[in-house]
Design a protein around this nucleic acid. Structure first.
Length: 572
DNA sequence: AAAAAAC
């Protein structure tokens, strides 16, 4: 603690030996089993007073806004309770899932189909193959979540849908089930009556998310002969053969990949009947917009059903989304742009960028629930923070950003899924959609750039009814945006020190100015987190190269020993 | 408002 105290003042040397012993103490006993029983216990309590702004405010009343449950039932708007009376879990692992929280559901639109209480009710109402229901049961889906019980009937009745539902509440299944139900006979089969070529397209903003959706898809598709393709460079190259493309039933892809194939003339989407945009607001960002429009334009079938899903949907994005849809129904579960109350959120003051590393090291020197997901604002910062943590002796540090190779990214994800990663440093690439069941702690090392980013980042925890914890570091430079995020905490039932709420809302001019300063500093700091130096960095890189080579050799040996390839997550 | 991500 003393060492940390000195460190936090900046100049003092870090007592690495001592710190290491702390770390090994914690790494030695199986931290995976250690339960974080008291979320109320904030790490800020451990901070030296000069870093602990909470302390000044504590004792005073922290304010908690009571959620307003009333919404004016205007026009066609309906207000209903999430059907699940039974406190049954909806997660993917059968048995030990906590109950899903109940949310209010509001629907808007013409002739909204009645929601269902159970998956069996779907079977009674629509022709749903028993295989599909069997697969659901087999993978531990028991009762539909709010978005599933409302969204699935809407999509089953061929309606367009804009669905807004909090992170970790089962949006993926909400669109996959109806799409799979509609696929019917596999493409190219002699009995087929639905024309030839791809019949469904699902777009996601990152490769990792597309991959995850593909995996979910394969679970549901067990026992059926559909060709479900996770689109990549490799699969795209097989499409040169027209016979191959005609046999594809469903494509899951990132937009640009798909556009590239369209422009190369290696793909037709004229028989697509279902188009889903996951993380819709992200997909309708300026940078993705054009690509998405191109995909939409290529889906020329007159009966193409479109659906958009997200946990957040800012007004302008919603406008764009609604204008794309035909006679749409809008479903909102819970409160838009609001995290789950299950996630215990807190804000930690760290004065400036240099103070972040010691604060994080201090945090990781105490027992925590791995894996912890740490978000930073840029790729170089992700690299250097990961290096710093390794140098400081933190165990099982991983890093993931889009500057890494495909294989590096895939490896990082599988380490994460296996539970081998204890501290995962990542950029926005991981902020949306990724579902790691074990993540119970998220740290925003760098302040999020928007409310949407905040909501999605912390939504990596608190999934499928589990509890989670989210800590956000803020510096003096983040002050102009602090209040906005503080309000999000309040909305979702977390507490915020009163002094933050009393901050005046800075004028637009001021925010712009501060933003400029912040950006300039970010550039300066981009390649320097804490006290790293070039030599250490070179050693690190050399070390990781050696490790990679060894791993490669081991894999080659393995491959030689067992000729059967792994097609667990391959492209079908 | 800006970075990241998409190929």
């Amino acid at each position: 603690m003393e060492a940390f105290h000195l460190l936090s003042r900046g100049g003092a040397k870090f007592d690495k030996q001592r710190f290491k012993s702390d770390v090994s103490l914690f790494t030695g006993n199986g931290t995976k089993e250690s339960k974080c029983s008291t979320f109320a216990h904030a790490p800020e309590g451990e901070l030296p007073p000069e870093l602990d702004f909470f302390k000044y405010a504590q004792g005073g009343n922290t304010k908690r806004k009571v959620l307003d449950a009333e919404v004016d039932p205007k026009g066609k708007r309906r207000k209903v309770e999430d059907g699940s009376e039974d406190e049954e879990a909806n997660g993917e692992q059968a048995g030990d899932d906590p109950p899903m929280p109940r949310h209010r559901v509001t629907t808007k639109g013409k002739n909204v189909p009645e929601h269902v209480e159970t998956f069996d009710a779907l079977r009674e109402r629509y022709s749903l193959s028993s295989q599909l229901l069997q697969n659901l049961a087999h993978h531990g889906y028991k009762r539909p979540t709010g978005i599933q019980s409302y969204g699935i009937p809407i999509l089953m009745e061929q309606r367009d849908l804009a669905a807004i539902s909090p992170t970790g509440t089962g949006k993926t299944l909400s669109y996959l089930l109806p799409v799979m139900a509609a696929l019917g006979t596999p493409a190219g089969s002699s009995k087929g009556d639905s024309g030839s070529g791809v019949r469904a397209v699902i777009l996601a903003p990152t490769r990792e998310l597309a991959h995850q959706i593909h995996n979910e898809c394969l679970k549901l598709a067990q026992g059926r002969k559909w060709r479900i393709v996770l689109f990549s460079k490799a699969t795209a190259s097989t499409l040169v053969d027209k016979k191959v493309r005609e046999k594809i039933d469903l494509i899951i892809s990132t937009p640009l990949r798909l556009v590239a194939s369209l422009q190369a003339g290696n793909l037709e989407l004229d028989n697509v009947r279902h188009l889903v945009l996951d993380e819709a607001d992200r997909m309708l960002d300026a940078e993705f917009m054009e690509q998405v429009q191109e995909v939409i334009a290529a889906c020329t079938h007159p009966e193409v059903q479109k659906a958009v899903f997200s946990a957040t949907l800012p007004a302008n994005a919603e406008k764009v989304a609604m204008s794309m849809l035909r006679d749409p129904i809008r479903v909102v579960v819970g409160l838009k742009d609001t995290p789950l109350p299950l996630i215990a959120q807190s804000l930690t003051y760290v004065s400036d960028d240099q103070s972040k590393l010691p604060t994080l090291l201090q945090y990781l020197s105490q027992p925590y629930n791995p894996p912890v997901l740490v978000f930073v604002s840029s790729q170089p910062r992700a690299n250097s923070l990961a290096e710093e943590l390794v140098i400081s002796g933190v165990a099982n540090v991983d890093c993931l950003h889009a500057g890494m190779t495909k294989k590096e990214r895939e490896d990082a994800i599988s380490r994460m899924r296996r539970g081998d990663s204890w501290v995962m440093i990542s950029t926005e690439v991981m902020a949306r959609g990724m579902d790691f069941k074990g993540v119970r702690e998220v740290i925003n090392y760098d302040f999020p750039q928007s409310v949407q980013s905040y909501v999605h980042r912390i939504g990596r925890t608190g999934r499928a009814g589990r509890e989670g914890k989210a800590i956000t570091y803020f510096t003096n430079q983040d002050a102009p945006f602090l209040k906005t995020i503080a309000n999000v905490l309040l909305q979702s039932g977390s507490t915020v020190p009163e002094w933050i709420l009393k901050l005046p809302k800075p004028s637009k001019m001021k925010r712009r100015e501060m933003g400029k300063i912040k950006r300039a500093e970010a550039v300066n700091n981009a390649r320097r987190i804490g006290r790293g130096d070039a030599i250490k960095r070179r050693e690190m890189i050399a070390g990781s190269k050696r490790r990679k080579e060894k791993e490669q050799q081991r894999k080659e040996k393995q491959a030689a020993a067992s000729p059967s390839g792994d097609d667990a997550d391959g492209e079908s």
